[in-house]
Nucleic acid binder design. Structure first.
Lengths: 253, 253
DNA sequence: ATAAACCTTTACGTTGGGTAAAGGTCAAGC
DNA sequence: GCTTGACCTTTACCCAACGTAAAGGTTTAT
């Protein structure tokens, strides 16, 4: 049985262009060329094409398919095992992506917009700058340039992991704050847990943590509407509640 | 804060070329162009880029990103949900691929110990026994003890090579069946090739091949759930498709 | 002043083919 | 014998999302 391009194309399910392309790159040459220049394929080529399509279906690149088909069976098995690993990596990558999308959707629906920094590890410079623009002036006035610069430097020097931990902690605080608020008591265990975690969170950014500075920040949270808006996102009145909890935690009340 | 291309490139982690490209396709235009023709980006562009990169990381195409960013938030959520579905499909596709690769590796590796003649003989016995257990009763009822015994004897007497060929052919049929099924047409060239190979495969086992018996087997494939399960492994509905293809091939329809 | 470091545009390469365009070949019907 | 339509051929431009020069202008540092 002999086939011209389009005949083979039909029985194999690929296009004629594909066959010409495979000829061009040397992946599948026709059995012969007839007197009019037509490509003529035989049974052997049909079988080879089947194999090629098998690998192609597995998302192996044509170049790798070429290599594989020129190897003995033993190495073909190895190649397949290798490919299997790649597929596994792809899948775990996909899983991560899906988790991110899921979280994003959840946070959009939940009304708590994700912090930019959470979306991108490695986008730290941008965050620092944002903070500078939003709060820089007030904070610099209150704590002095040295403190702020040191804080920024610490942020900049943080590992991606630490950065992510910090953001995760920030999110956790928001969720805890909401529940703590419902206790109605800033001295409650839950509220004090929030305060403790807030200290922990702050220590990611502040190289020189002090109770006094922390308490000062707590007051500023309440008096600056941009901070208020931020912490009230979790629950209305959350900022004041957080301040109260912090002051108790810091034993300054 | 203002940035030239490479400055922005550094803080965002993409290349300068990428930024020029995004400018070119209109995805992200610089805030302004200075007197020397340099692209100058501002804070707004940094934020936009961040969003773009977020979607890009999710493997959304740049074209879709353009669309998404021109939509209000609620549509963005919808787009994300849509994208999530796509990712899920991708993953289930990947899972199938991985299963196929696994099977192929297993069968290729299974071919190596077969070089050992004793093991090979044992393997054949095992197959025969398995067949007996799985389908023996029905087949014996339908075709009689003589036919079945002859078949088993033929299997037992097969050379190692023939046996391996038979198994390879069986595998090939499964793969072809899957592709043939996608043509949707049991009379298609691909489907008829499957039928032809099925006949070839059967003749390894049956000493006395007949069209009638083949057609009978085809019907049994569909009515017996164990056969159905076997051929549906390749593709759901594959058993019926195989029967239809066989009946056409055998010209009994 | 001169070199190094940046910036610009233009343009070709990558994968795996799709899609013309321009032209040769073959079987069928008149 | 001639035309028509179905095939076949090669050449060549197109897609995404940039990478990688090349050739040349600008800014900064020494």
């Amino acid at each position: 049985m002999e086939y011209t391009v389009n005949k083979l194309a039909k029985i194999s399910g690929v296009s004629g262009r594909t066959l010409r392309y495979y000829d061009q790159i040397g992946l599948l040459k026709p059995a012969r060329i007839n007197s009019s220049g037509y490509r003529i394929y035989g049974q052997k080529e049909v079988d080879l094409l089947q194999q090629i399509l098998f690998y192609r279906e597995l998302e192996v690149s044509l170049e790798e398919i070429m290599d594989i088909m020129n190897e003995p069976t033993y190495n073909q098995t190895k190649a397949l095992e290798n490919h299997y690993k790649k597929l596994m990596q792809k899948r775990s990558h996909l899983d991560k992506l899906m988790a991110t999308v899921e979280k994003t959707i959840a946070s959009k629906k939940g009304g708590i917009p994700m912090q930019d920094k959470e979306k991108f590890a490695g986008f730290k410079d941008k965050i620092i700058e944002e903070n500078e623009q939003k709060f820089g002036k007030e904070i610099r006035e209150k704590y002095g340039d040295e403190t702020v610069n040191a804080s920024n430097a610490k942020l900049r020097g943080m590992s991606e992991e630490d950065f992510k931990s910090m953001n995760d902690l920030g999110e956790e605080i928001m969720l805890l704050l909401e529940r703590a608020y419902k206790t109605g008591n800033p001295a409650s265990d839950l509220a004090q847990e929030v305060a403790a975690k807030h200290k922990q969170w702050l220590m990611y950014a502040w190289p020189n943590y002090s109770k006094e500075a922390h308490a000062g920040l707590a007051e500023m949270y309440v008096s600056d509407e941009r901070f208020t808006a931020y912490y009230d996102k979790a629950i209305k009145g959350g900022t004041e509640f957080l301040r109260d909890a912090l002051l108790i935690f810091l034993d300054m009340k």
